[in-house]
Amino acid sequence: MVRLAAPGLLERQLAVDWLVVDQTDGFPAGAAEAALHEAIGSPAWNVVREKAGIILLARVQ
């Protein structure tokens, strides 16, 4: 299992191209939801798939 919670990571150029958010996992508290809202609110990210609380997003190239 990989856990990544780094505020500001999504705003860096070429930091990550894919983001997987598990809305069912509460660790660390609020980090997954904060990253999800940041990505969904940005035109740089597209939701590729959503199933059972897992959301896959891809950076728009």
Rank of each mutant, 00 (worst) to 15 (best):
M1S: 11
V2P: 13
V2K: 08
V2G: 13
R3Q: 09
R3L: 13
R3C: 14
L4A: 10
L4D: 10
L4K: 07
A5D: 11
A5M: 05
A6E: 15
A6G: 11
A6Q: 12
G8V: 04
G8L: 02
L9H: 06
L10V: 05
L10S: 02
L10M: 05
E11R: 13
E11G: 07
E11K: 10
R12I: 06
R12H: 12
R12N: 08
Q13M: 08
Q13E: 15
L14D: 15
L14G: 11
L14A: 11
A15I: 06
A15W: 07
A15K: 06
V16M: 09
V16S: 05
D17Q: 09
D17K: 07
D17I: 01
D17E: 09
W18A: 08
L19V: 00
L19I: 02
V20N: 03
V20C: 07
V20A: 06
V20Q: 06
V20L: 07
V20R: 08
V20Y: 07
V21S: 00
D22C: 11
D22F: 06
D22I: 09
Q23Y: 05
T24K: 15
D25W: 15
D25M: 12
D25S: 15
D25G: 09
G26D: 14
G26Q: 14
F27W: 15
F27K: 10
F27V: 11
P28H: 02
P28I: 03
A29D: 09
A29I: 10
G30K: 01
G30Q: 01
A31N: 02
A31P: 00
A31F: 01
A31Y: 02
A31T: 05
A31Q: 05
E33I: 10
E33T: 12
A34V: 04
A35L: 14
A35Q: 08
A35N: 07
L36W: 06
L36I: 06
L36K: 07
E38I: 04
E38R: 04
E38N: 11
E38M: 05
E38T: 11
A39F: 00
A39Y: 00
A39Q: 01
A39W: 00
I40Y: 04
I40G: 04
I40L: 14
I40V: 15
I40E: 10
G41A: 08
G41I: 02
G41C: 05
G41R: 07
G41Y: 04
P43I: 02
P43Q: 03
P43S: 03
A44K: 06
W45M: 07
N46G: 11
N46D: 13
N46Q: 13
V47G: 00
V47S: 01
V47H: 03
V47I: 11
V48D: 09
R49C: 01
E50Q: 06
E50Y: 01
E50M: 04
K51Q: 15
K51W: 09
K51N: 09
K51I: 10
A52R: 13
A52H: 15
I54G: 05
I54D: 06
I55M: 01
I55Q: 01
L56C: 07
L56V: 13
L56I: 13
L57C: 02
L57E: 00
L57M: 08
A58F: 03
A58Y: 05
A58G: 09
R59K: 11
R59E: 03
R59M: 03
R59G: 01
V60N: 12
V60S: 09
Q61D: 15
Q61K: 12
Q61W: 10
Q61A: 14
Q61M: 12
